[in-house]
């Protein structure tokens, strides 16, 4: 013999506790009030690619050498690169145009994997909606270029790793160049030093 209706009363008590509790305990309310509070993104969060540059000047510090590997590897083919040329028409290791159509990009990160110069990386910016259907969904070079410090702010571990690798590379190359220079002694000191300075890029 149970008291009929006690289950309903129990249920009402539960909902009443939830109702009152949501005014007392703030951590019951898990909803984020989006435009006012932003989610703290996990470090591994990724949206679309961007280009990293070193130092303060995007043009001179660009890591990209316009090797076009990412353009070839991109599965939906959303990357478009034109190599820059100087007045004489000679190719420079720098892209003149670098566009990513993020309406096509599928965030697969293959471009990041294949880039040998640690130049293209994944961003965390997710507020990319716009009223312009064609223009603003194609990110061009000025929009894509972001500083290494920004990279450090979004993916600190990964950025430190990348910097370490670049530094190690540079040291290795310097050591190799030094060894080469020591071994080959005199004959072509000028050319060796010039080539090493070109390869290591800006620190």
């Amino acid at each position: 013999m149970i008291f009929p209706g006690s289950g309903i009363l129990k249920g009402l008590a539960v909902t009443a506790r939830n109702f009152a509790g949501s005014y007392v305990e703030k951590d019951r309310l898990t909803t984020e009030q989006y435009p006012e509070e932003r989610p703290k993104l996990p470090e591994a969060a990724r949206s679309f690619p961007f280009l990293v540059y070193d130092g303060d000047n995007p043009e001179t510090g660009m890591r990209c050498v316009s090797c076009k590997i990412c353009e070839k590897e991109c599965p939906p083919q959303c990357i478009y690169i034109i190599q820059d040329r100087d007045e004489a028409g000679k190719a420079i290791k720098r892209p003149k145009v670098f566009d990513i159509d993020i309406s096509v990009c599928m965030s697969c990160q293959i471009c990041v994997e294949v880039c040998p110069f640690e130049s293209i990386r994944m961003d965390q910016d997710y507020e990319l909606s716009s009223f312009d259907r064609f223009g603003s969904l194609i990110l061009d070079k000025p929009k894509l270029l972001k500083s290494n410090s920004y990279y450090h702010s979004i993916h600190p571990t990964e950025a430190a790793e990348t910097d370490g690798r670049i530094e190690a590379d540079r040291l290795k190359k310097e050591a190799a160049a030094a060894a080469k220079a020591a071994k080959a002694a005199a004959p072509s000191v000028v050319s060796a030093s010039s080539s090493s300075s070109q390869q290591e890029g800006k620190p």
Binding site: N18, F19, G21, S22, R28, L29, T31, Q33
Partner: peptide
């Protein structure tokens, strides 16, 4: 709003 509070949400605000 009340239904939301019971479900630990904010409701229309």
């Amino acid at each position: 709003k009340i239904l939301a509070r019971v479900q630990n949400r904010y409701g229309p605000n």
